[in-house]
Design a protein around this nucleic acid. Structure first.
Lengths: 222, 222
DNA sequence: ATCTAAATTTAGGCTTACCTAAAAAATTTA
DNA sequence: TAAATTTTTTAGGTAAGCCTAAATTTAGAT
């Protein structure tokens, strides 16, 4: 199985399928891919056929797609590139942590293994990116630092924000408005039964965030 | 005239047309574009129409293309990106000077003005790239360091190699074989009337190079 | 269990950026 | 200057990656 060069589109699909699959453990629906990539389901079906033919995913008609071993391997390399570029943009070029995602989204498709290895070395082999996400090494090995979310804390417990899952522009501006970033200390004041939203303290100011928001913010308990 | 985002192909055509035009002063033939880009003339005609419609070049049927003011402006920005990435690859990631061209060829199409400006700052605003080519600044201003070529030297004169014009892989390996790089001292031993090839000394060893090769190696006279 | 709604696929179309073959224009040569 | 050659353009075609509309399959509600 020669390591065929993938197009930018193919790489983006593969990355999304991998992310939706929870490390290859779950079948991924055509609709969910359509949603994260903002591409019509019919087009997704086209690409699924293409990736299946290359044995990067397995597809069962009308059921969903599963990413293959070789698909996972490639996806991890794309994620590695993305996160290394994010470290570069943040640490070396002084971009803010909420400005780096879109640029890294382009840089990750520049395909030179030597480039990435040299970049890795230049950055001193970082383990996590500026959003707190772990960076796979050259072999695709990755630290599973899947921390607990804000919503897993009980009332009066505290945590330090360590990782932001959702990388959408809107989510970043929301966090900015809430004064939340990596390293911010949060304390749970109340859990609202009705919709499971949470009242939390940030800088001693009280705000209420939805369960969905809380789920997207991983923390280290303190 | 809004600054419309160009595709990778459009950028490559524009850059080539600019390079062939000698800073916008010469009309460029369809065939010459075809040759440097390795794309059939018929396809070049297609793209010429596209770029003309965007007023980046002017085209006179069966005569040739001239790059416009706004075309030059964009071409200089693409060249700026290319050369800044080359400096980064060479100075920071420790790539050899003959390995950087192809990677920079991809990186130059990542379109973020802020990225390039921050990269420029990170690299301390370099004036030349590792091949000795001048780097346009943010405004497109560029030092005209168009030095003389080896072939302009007379017998017994010496020079320091300052700039390599041809950036093809083969040309680099030829230079490697000849032990020529930026900074190498060369001395003219003889000029051969027959085909204007030159006998030169490098590290006190004598070699004969064709006029074409000599023209592609710029030097500073010493 | 059937009927409906949602998810998925198929069919047919479009644009970009390329191609080949053939026609047209310009240039060179005799 | 007319014929031959070269250059350029036109015409028609292809693959990738998207689209919409319609058909098909699956899942959910009653």
């Amino acid at each position: 199985m020669a390591n065929v060069k993938l197009s930018k589109s193919e790489e983006n699909y593969l990355k999304s399928i991998f992310n939706l699959s929870e490390f290859g453990n779950k079948q991924v629906s055509t609709n969910s891919i359509s949603k994260v990539l903002n591409i019509e389901p019919a087009s997704v079906t086209d690409m699924i056929k293409k990736l299946s033919k290359k044995n990067l995913i397995y597809h069962e008609k009308y059921k969903g797609s599963t990413i293959s071993k070789s698909g996972i391997k490639i996806a991890l390399q794309i994620i590695r590139r993305h996160r290394l570029w994010e470290v570069f943009l943040h640490d070396k070029l002084n971009f803010k942590w909420d400005e780096i995602h879109n640029i890294a989204e382009e840089l990750e498709h520049v395909s030179s293994e030597e480039l990435i290895d040299n970049l890795d070395k230049f950055l001193k082999y970082p383990k996590i990116d500026p959003h707190g996400d772990p960076i796979p090494n050259k072999l695709g090995e990755i630290d599973f630092v899947d921390k607990i979310s804000i919503s897993d804390l009980n009332i009066n417990e505290k945590g330090i924000v360590s990782r932001i899952i959702n990388e959408d522009e809107e989510f970043f501006s929301l966090l900015k408005k809430l004064n939340i970033e990596i390293g911010t200390e949060v304390k749970i004041i109340d859990k609202i039964e009705y919709d499971q939203s949470l009242e939390i303290h940030i800088d001693n100011k009280s705000v209420i965030i939805s369960k969905d928001i809380a789920d997207n913010i991983k923390i280290t308990k303190i």
